[in-house]
């Protein structure tokens, strides 16, 4: 029985990967111009041909959009999984502890101050902002040397809201060009192009494998300070690296899709239910679930009332916020 479940857990990862492929292919057909599966296949065969409208739509619009959505959803989810483990707080999630809004605000500043900055400047600036915001939330949450989960979440939500309001305020006053370049920050995959993928991808290719390699250290950190140190973990260094990693994953994702509300909360929680809390399975499952969630939400957002577009972040927030409330009640009771 137990062994059977252990075996099943291993098959969950390929199943989720398959799920992502299915959702991705389905997403190719949905939008203002609807395509059947056969039309999608035909258009995929004609990708190079400029005269095939379907192929142009797929290549110019939908493919980058799906890839950016999947990648950023995965990064938000991995970030949530890492933060929840390291802070030992089920409520920790990049958009709850201030990281996402900090990254968004910093992205605006970066583009305003360095309008001609190279592609990589935006994610780097966002990471800096995300980390500063997290440090601020964490310091505000410490009371008598301890950080209570609920306190961190409440202060995090407040800081997140303030930073996000500040970002919107600045964008109102900014030139049209800058404002337009950053409209996606509200949390939408709409308008994601290949350039946006190239902006995010190199960072993802560095951060995601790094997180996977460090899975055992993340496990040991989630035992808490005393046990982690007894096991020979260099606690301060280990925690710093893990937090930087968690913050960077979400901050880079913000420069791809803006803040996709609660993806960093729901995806790792669902993953934990499926594969348990050890990171060697939790991280891959979170990555895949985050990708599925965002691509799915964005497909719905395109398909519900075409040709109108609903921001994908709106849908994920609609699903995530009630779950967050439920979680707050549960964590509140446990204390």
């Amino acid at each position: 029985m137990k062994a059977a479940w252990a075996g099943l857990k291993l098959t969950i990862i390929p199943l989720l990967a398959l799920g992502l492929v299915v959702v991705g292919i389905a997403a190719l057909g949905v939008g203002a111009v609807r395509m059947s599966f056969a039309e999608v296949l035909q258009a995929l065969g004609n990708l190079g041909h400029a005269e095939d409208t379907h192929a142009r739509i797929l290549y110019d619009l939908r493919m980058p959009r799906i890839l950016v959505g999947a990648l950023c959803g995965a990064m938000f989810a991995a970030s949530g999984a890492i933060l929840q483990g390291v802070v030992r707080n089920p409520l920790a999630s990049p958009d709850i502890v201030g990281v996402a809004a900090g990254a968004g605000l910093a992205a605006v500043f970066t583009l305003l101050l360095l309008p001609k900055a190279p592609l990589w400047a935006l994610p780097v600036g966002a990471c800096l902002g995300g980390f500063l915001a997290f440090v601020l939330v964490y310091l505000l949450s410490i009371r008598t040397g301890e950080v209570l989960p609920i306190r961190l979440a409440l202060i995090g939500v407040a800081v997140e809201a303030s930073l996000d309001a500040l970002r919107r305020l600045i964008l109102v006053r900014a030139d049209d060009g800058v404002a337009q370049a950053l409209t996606f920050l509200v949390g939408t995959v709409y308008g994601a192009d290949w350039e946006r993928l190239w902006r995010v991808l190199p960072f993802a290719l560095f951060l995601i494998p790094l997180a996977l390699i460090l899975h055992q250290k993340l496990d040991v950190l989630s035992f808490g300070d005393s046990t982690a140190r007894s096991l020979g973990m260099r606690l301060e260094l280990g925690r710093l690296v893990a937090l930087l990693l968690g913050v960077a994953l979400a901050s880079v994702a913000v420069t791809g899709t803006g803040i996709l509300g609660f993806v960093g909360l729901i995806a790792p929680h669902a993953a934990r239910l499926l594969v348990g809390s050890r990171f060697h399975l939790l991280l891959p499952a979170s990555l895949l679930l985050g990708a599925i969630l965002v691509v799915g939400a964005d497909t719905l957002a395109r398909g519900l009332v075409p040709p109108l577009e609903i921001p994908a972040g709106l849908l994920t927030t609609l699903v995530g916020a009630p779950y967050f409330l439920y979680l707050m009640r549960r964590v509140g009771r446990a204390r």
């Binding site: 989630s222 035992f223 808490g224 005393s226 046990t227 007894s230 934990r272 050890r278």
Partner: peptide
């Protein structure tokens, strides 16, 4: 072995 050690869920 600390007092009341905590483990990640489901271990």
């Amino acid at each position: 072995l600390p007092q009341m050690p905590q483990a990640p869920e489901g271990l």
